[in-house]
Every structure is written in C-alpha cells, then in structure tokens.
C-alpha cells in the first residue's frame, strides 16, 4: 500500500496576523510555523492504515526550504519519506498542479490532504487534484477504512453526514473527528533525522490568480454593556438598534 499525504506549513493558531510592504505580504516576523493541523490528521490516518499493511506513506510539501522543520515533524510522526517541491506556493491551483505532476505516475493507492490550510483557507486542493488526476475526490471526511480495493468513508455534508464507498485510488480531505493527531515519540524523532527528504524542482504552472493586497477586519466600535438583571434590554436593542432579530 502506497499513500501520499500533502501538507502545508502555516502560522501557529495563536499568531496575531499582520502585513508588511504596504499590506501586500504577510509579516512572518516572529511567527512560529507549524504543520497544518488538518494535515496532521490526514497523516495520522494514513499511517494508521498503511502501517499494519506494511505500506509506505510519502509526505509532500510545496514550499521553500524553511518548511523543513515541519516536514521533519511529519517524518517523526511516522511518514516513510518526504518530498519537497522547491517553489513558493502562490495559490491552491499552482500547488495542486505541482502535486498532480508528482503523483500522476507513482501509483498511490490514495491521496489525503487536510480539509483546508488554516492560512489561506482555500479548501480547494482535494477537488483540484481529483480533477487533475481524474480520480474521485471526497471532501471533509470524518472516517476512513480501506478493505481490499475499496474504501468506506464518512464525510460531512451540509446539515449532516454521509457514508460513501469508493474504489482505490481516490483523493480525500481530512476533517476534525477523523482521528486524534499522532504525537511524535523520541524514537520517531531520532529516526526522522535520517529519513529521506527529496527535493525536486517545480513544473511550470499556469498563473490563474494573484494576491494583490491584504486587509485586517475593521475593529469593533466598542462594547455596550447591559445589566445582567435586564436581558429584555438586550432583546430590545437587537431588535430595534442592531436590527438582527
């Protein structure tokens, strides 16, 4: 069994977001970068399935060299090998093109991504990859089991859940509830140091979108306090002042 897990590297969830160069780029000063939380779930699930079957899990990242500590973390969690495509990940379509170009002739049994990266929140790579590789794509999965050549998958749908079956190979994106993320142990951390990390150059891709500017949300005007004894006033204000009920 061969599994591919795609990972992105994102600012830690506690990061206060700011921008530089006249709001045209994200200010990385003092920011701690981590493996995208949903990708940790994807990797853990891939390992849970591939390990008992004696399979391999390849972790793939599209990005520059400063992502390598996060990639090593993925290796310490148990990934067999890592691949880094040496390019700035400009947008979801570019990233998906790179992954598809790498994966197309490798014979992976399935490919997992996170539901979305917590920085650009595109949630697009799973579907993009599915179409590029002509594979079924199943978004926001909360359970995955593989038996023979068939996977049974539970996924979130609008207002509920659905169980689908799907032949291998396929692409799916990990949602919370899929599993608890694996914590690397000391043995894993030691082993990760010598695991292979292959660096390959990008293929040329189309440039469909361009991030031109960033903006922070407007700060609130200030809070209006209401006495705990008088919640009727809150309802009155919500109805007549804010007009939201």
């Amino acid at each position: 069994m061969k599994v591919l897990v795609c990972m992105s590297v994102v600012p830690d969830t506690t990061t206060k977001i700011t921008f530089t160069n006249s709001d045209t780029s994200f200010n990385t000063q003092g920011v701690q970068f981590i493996m995208n939380p949903y990708d940790e779930l994807a990797l853990t699930k891939a390992l849970d399935i591939a390990d008992p079957a004696g399979g391999s899990v390849t972790i793939l990242h599209v990005g520059p060299a400063d992502a390598e500590p996060a990639i090593r973390k993925a290796l310490s969690m148990g990934a067999t090998e890592a691949v880094r495509i040496n390019a700035a990940p400009t947008d979801a379509q570019f990233v998906a093109e790179q992954i598809a170009a790498y994966a197309k002739d490798k014979g992976f049994d399935f490919i997992l991504t996170g539901r979305e990266s917590i920085d650009y929140n595109g949630g697009a790579v799973c579907g993009l990859l599915g179409a590029m590789l002509n594979l079924p794509s199943i978004n926001v999965i909360t359970q995955l089991g593989v038996s023979g050549q068939t996977a049974t998958i539970e996924r979130d749908i609008d207002g509920g859940r659905e169980i689908v079956s799907c032949p291998l190979p396929f692409v799916a994106s990990a949602q919370k509830d899929l599993c608890e993320p694996r914590i690397p142990n000391m043995r894993g951390i030691m082993a990760a140091r010598t695991k292979p990390l292959q660096i390959i150059e990008p293929v040329s891709g189309a440039n469909h979108v361009n991030y031109s500017k960033f903006e922070l949300p407007q700060p609130k005007q200030g809070v209006r306090m209401i006495s705990a004894e008088n919640p009727e006033e809150l309802l009155h204000l919500l109805r007549n002042e804010a007009k939201v009920i």
């Binding site: 379509q93 949630g123 794509s137 189309a206 469909h208």
Partner: peptide, 23 residues
C-alpha cells in the same frame, strides 16, 4: 462555498481551465 459547493468548485475550475477563488 458550502460543503457541496466546495466539493465541486475545484473540479469545475480544472475542467474550465479557469481561475479559482473560494471563500
């Protein structure tokens, strides 16, 4: 950008060779 919409938007962009912006 619902779950159903997210399931197809990427595929549609590839099929139409278009630019994609979600969210």
């Amino acid at each position: 950008n619902t779950y159903s919409g997210k399931s197809i938007s990427g595929r549609v962009a590839v099929l139409l060779q278009g630019a994609l912006a979600t969210n």
